[in-house]
């Protein structure tokens, strides 16, 4: 049967991993390729690279990084951060990325989703949505959650699916960084209303949070960064524990 996916996220700045830590075994903890290979060996099901650098030169650096990751890593990976055109996506896919994720650019120009799907297929277009609750309503935020919009989460998710996106990566800004668990209520609603896979993001702190997001949150995959970066949790231990709790995972 189809298993639930565990997806470590690597934040990239100028071709290097940020939030990098003391992986004793790594020659260079800031090298995304080495860290990616390590996560793959530990049992990660996919990887997400989020480029947070903001220079004009970053495209070239990012494309080169994607090439080297594809060369070394034998599991799928998604690249996101600042992607706003067909040309951006073309470069990343040609260099070996399996999927790309778009976020602010899709909200500003929803037709971009249709264009990308028409050219590259649904299977490689992930739409990332950052949202938080404002007066009891989930509102989409842009630029890494900094800029509020009037767009409502569930209607935006519906539109995203209708426009052909293959997956939704939902980050709750209310939960991100808290380590108190994922936004399972919103996730469950998203997952029930939509017919494409939903990736949960924001709030992972312990194993039980993953179990909860797969059961109560009905998530198809769960993404986390710091718990893996800071080695608070080994992916192999996490998956073993999930399996013990009856969650289908690849071991």
């Amino acid at each position: 049967m189809l298993t639930k996916r565990i997806i470590p996220c690597l934040d990239i700045k100028d071709g290097r991993t940020v939030k990098g830590v003391n992986f004793m075994e790594l020659r260079d903890a800031g090298d995304p390729v080495e860290l990616a290979a390590r996560y793959a060996d530990e049992g990660a099901d996919e990887l997400v690279f989020l480029d947070i650098s903001a220079t004009e030169e970053k495209r070239k650096t990012l494309a080169r990084l994607v090439y080297h990751v594809a060369e070394k890593v034998n599991i799928p990976f998604t690249v996101g951060g600042g992607i706003s055109s067909v040309q951006d996506v073309d470069v990343l896919l040609k260099n070996g990325a399996d999927k790309v994720s778009i976020n602010s650019s899709a909200v500003k120009n929803p037709d971009l989703i249709n264009e990308l799907v028409a050219k590259f297929g649904s299977q490689c277009i992930v739409v990332a949505i950052d949202a938080k609750q404002v007066d009891g309503e989930w509102k989409v935020h842009l630029v890494g959650g900094k800029v509020p919009t009037d767009v409502e989460l569930f209607s935006w998710a519906k539109e995203v699916e209708e426009r052909g996106a293959g997956e939704i990566l939902f980050t709750s800004m209310d939960h991100d960084g808290t380590k108190n668990g994922f936004a399972n209520e919103a996730l469950a609603r998203l997952s029930s209303e939509r017919n494409i896979p939903i990736i949960a993001s924001g709030g992972a702190g312990k194993v039980q949070h993953f179990t909860d997001t797969f059961i109560a949150g009905k998530a198809d995959a769960a993404l986390a960064a710091s718990v893996f970066h800071y080695k608070e949790m080994e992916i192999s231990d996490l998956k073993r524990e999930l399996k013990n709790q009856g969650i289908p995972v690849r071991i």
Partner: peptide
């Protein structure tokens, strides 16, 4: 079922 199927199966 959700479409596309994305992930690891047996």
């Amino acid at each position: 079922v959700k479409v596309p199927q994305i992930g690891w199966n047996q």
